[in-house]
């Protein structure tokens, strides 16, 4: 990339667009974090002297919200595991397939295009017919169908770094299928696996429409928050949003720090 290659006016436009995009993306959540530190009931930015942790304190008393958070974390963890492992197996199968590759790919990403409200309804009707009582597992089932195509796509993208000749060379040096997969394929597609974990976790954590059909007695976090908003927002959900955002930013920061340190060494 050559710095200063484009005309000054074009560069200005590019910078302006970048700034606008960043503002559009980050301003609302940051505003929300600001609101969460306002002790007043009405959502607004706190005056400098009024910053308070009042709603964060109140959060500790919100048993239902915490139960929903715990439920969502449980479901998201299970979904992440199942979706990443299944997608990995599907991607390994893709590697072995010849002419059927394209059909396999389409088959795997098809659930991505089924609207959530329809998928959720269909699953709930079927589970009802089989007399399955909805619980966290039924929600996770719906979420896996949603997250797996994304995991598959992300892992498959990273598979391009696995040249066929690497596998031939490993076989040539005596490695069987298991060793080739463990020692050559997995390390090379690690970025894809990490991507799949992040993607499927967030997709599940955020999911609303499928959850609303498949949920049991315990609400997931998005359902609980939506319910709270409808029944008159209490500022505690701002505190919860703020907390989630701060934790996510901290996590991303830590990951970036670690990878930066690793690439330096």
């Amino acid at each position: 990339m050559s710095v200063g290659f484009e005309k000054r006016s074009i560069r200005l436009v590019i910078w302006a667009l970048t700034a606008i995009a960043l503002i559009v993306v980050y301003l609302p959540p940051i505003y929300l974090v600001g609101v969460s530190f306002n002790p007043a009931l009405q959502p607004a930015l706190p005056a400098p002297g009024e910053i308070s942790l009042k709603w964060y304190g109140a959060l500790l008393g919100e048993g239902r919200l915490f139960a929903a958070l715990r439920e969502s974390l449980l479901i998201a963890s299970v979904v992440t595991l199942v979706s990443t492992v299944t997608a990995l197996i599907a991607a390994l199968a893709y590697l072995e397939l010849g002419k059927l590759r394209n059909s396999w790919f389409l088959l795997m990403i098809l659930p991505m295009f089924v609207p959530g409200i329809i998928q959720g309804l269909a699953l709930s009707v079927l589970l009802n017919r089989w007399e399955v009582v909805p619980f966290w597992g039924t929600v996770a089932l719906g979420h896996v169908l949603w997250a797996m195509p994304f995991s598959f796509t992300v892992i498959l993208t990273s598979m391009v770094s696995v040249r066929r000749s690497y596998l031939l060379a490993a076989a040539d040096l005596g490695a069987g299928w298991g060793q080739r997969t463990r020692q050559i394929v997995l390390p090379l597609i690690l970025p894809g696996l990490v991507g799949s974990v992040v993607f499927s976790f967030l997709l599940s954590f955020n999911e609303f429409s499928r959850s609303s059909y498949l949920v049991g007695r315990q609400n997931t976090l998005p359902l609980e928050m939506f319910g709270k908003m409808n029944s008159g927002a209490t500022p505690t959900i701002y505190a919860l949003s703020g907390l989630t955002l701060i934790v996510s930013i901290l996590l991303v920061g830590i990951v970036m720090l670690i990878s930066a340190r690793r690439s330096r060494s």
Binding site: R163, S165, Y166, L168, A169, A170, D172, L173, I184
Partner: peptide, 10 residues
Amino acid sequence: NTVFQDLALF
């Protein structure tokens, strides 16, 4: 053992 055309170094 084989030395491949693209070498196939890991």
